[in-house]
Design a protein around this nucleic acid. Sequence first.
DNA 1: GACAACATTTGTCATTTGGCAAAAAGCAAA
DNA 2: TTTGCTTTTTGCCAAATGACAAATGTTGTC
Lengths: 188, 188
Amino acid sequence: MEALINYLLQFGQLNQQQIDLVKSRSKEVQLKKEDYFSEAGKTAKQVAFIIDGILRVCYYKNKGEEITRYFIDENNFAVDINSFMYKIPSSEYIQAVTDCKLIIFSDYALKELSLTIIGWDDIINQITTKSLIEKVNRISPMLAEDAKSRYLSFLEKFPQLANRIPLSFLASYIGITQSSLSRIRRKI
Amino acid sequence: MEALINYLLQFGQLNQQQIDLVKSRSKEVQLKKEDYFSEAGKTAKQVAFIIDGILRVCYYKNKGEEITRYFIDENNFAVDINSFMYKIPSSEYIQAVTDCKLIIFSDYALKELSLTIIGWDDIINQITTKSLIEKVNRISPMLAEDAKSRYLSFLEKFPQLANRIPLSFLASYIGITQSSLSRIRRKI
DNA sequence: GACAACATTTGTCATTTGGCAAAAAGCAAA
DNA sequence: TTTGCTTTTTGCCAAATGACAAATGTTGTC
């Protein structure tokens, strides 16, 4: 819980009363490995802050192939922002890759914090923008690299993540088959 | 200019006085093909709204290879957001692919609009978030597709763009060599 | 039209990757 | 340890792509 507060305080000031309000409107939730935090077809109504564990965003291509689009780890917010922000049914899943401990805010709770805490919107906007920029910066260069470089970049940026996720997820995130990734690893 | 105002009004209300203020703080600029709107090494101090023409975001890989990361066309804002928002030197260029007519706002002008117009920040935040989400949604699925599909997706989403940009830019955006793209096109 | 400058296509070959199936390795429960 | 299950690695071959060079096409200028 302190991790969340510290995270928020990076983006703006909150006094003790406001911090208590934030805490009181949050809810701690445990997810078992493979549980879903949000699901395709449903409209996302929650935002999560990851205390412990790894989530992944995934969807199914037309052919039924499962694609892992993104990983989210500790000390980050996870939300299906498309669905949550525009109140439309989602087209993808957010699933626990490992057992997870999350702090949850409902859309209702967030609305209340927005109306009550001066500066809350600014904090949320900063976090949203920063997260999206980071995501673009992370994904965007990948197309210009070959598979081996993409794998090495991943290892470099998330050295602690590679050992905690199945190879198949990582391969699909990198955009190659599991076999190819296995071959790439052998060469290193 | 009306295009810009209409664009802004999609995200919030502005009365005539506010509209006039926005107009008065903007500046119309023409770019010749290949001119730069912002450059690597410099800190971005301007935001552009594209009235006419196409810009591209590009950078140079370590080996010197030029990579086109993104195209931006009419009725969209163009800004090196990393550099502009955090006031750090940029690592990429924004260049005119065609002759362009832009409406420019300086960081100073935007600051003034932010302080003067109630609701301006909200409009800007909405535009920023929406643009970033769209960008993620555009780039993200590309890794999961093969080159041919990526090309077809591009044609589908930007049918009018493909004829206006050099093949080499498009190939690098798609993440393949120009020769490969040429071969892919032959097969269609 | 002739030319130059640039953009696109094509040819050739080496390398990478995908698709499929089988083998090997890792892991957890009995 | 054995057994069953899942994950990862390999082998094989076909297809896609990259690298490089040459040919062809396009455009604008004189």
